[in-house]
């Protein structure tokens, strides 16, 4: 059985380059803190837009971070669950996807004609090199169970592929859902 990693991330990329600049995201995240617009104990916003392909603008919460993320040359919404992950992988993935979807949709609502996320594909990151080294073996070990769990969660077929070849990188998977978008069935 696949063990839940210490930290788990889900990122949805934007479909196209937006007119909105990272600078414009900072006040949005500050307002989210005031309005409790997304779940979690929201603490602060930090600006890393000066770092090439970095985490961009990050909304720090106690149990998770929400980043308007610039990594891999792809702008997206990256949700990283740092604490209090459920013990079973299905619940952990369900939680991370639902929080990432919630945040991405909330961000789209801020600029409906400009920010459009690709909900047909997500990157899932295992931030835990002790249990998940980025190797082909790790991928083979988790592929079947992950595919089954994700298919159950989204009631659709999913395909998985390793996101990075470099064994030093985080173990991360590109996950594509067949015939539509990620849509969590409660």
């Amino acid at each position: 059985m696949t063990i839940v990693p210490k930290r788990l991330g889900v990122k949805f990329n934007l479909k196209r380059q937006p007119a909105l600049q990272p600078d414009d995201i900072l006040p949005i995240f500050q307002r989210w803190i005031q309005d409790h617009s997304v779940g979690g104990m929201l603490i602060d916003v930090i600006d890393y837009k000066h770092v090439p392909e970095g985490p961009g603008i990050v909304l720090i919460a106690d149990e998770a971070d929400f980043a308007y993320d610039l990594a891999d040359g792809q702008i997206g919404l990256h949700y990283v669950r740092k604490r209090d992950l459920p013990d079973d992988l299905e619940s952990a993935l369900r939680l991370c996807f639902s929080r990432a979807l919630e945040a991405a949709r909330a961000l789209e609502a801020e600029a409906p004609d400009d920010l459009l996320f690709d909900y047909g594909c997500a990157k899932i990151s295992f931030l835990d090199r002790m249990r998940y080294r980025n190797t082909p073996e790790t991928f083979e070990n988790v592929r079947a169970e992950m595919t089954e769990i994700l298919s159950d969660i989204f009631s659709a077929s999913v395909t998985l592929a390793r996101a990075y070849d470099d064994p030093r990188s985080l173990f991360a998977l590109h996950c594509r859902v067949g015939g539509g978008d990620f849509n969590i069935q409660s």
Binding site: R7, Y48, V58, D65, A67, L170
Partner: peptide
């Protein structure tokens, strides 16, 4: 930085 911080 990846695993315990914010990647920076």
């Amino acid at each position: 930085a990846d695993e315990y911080s914010d990647g920076i």
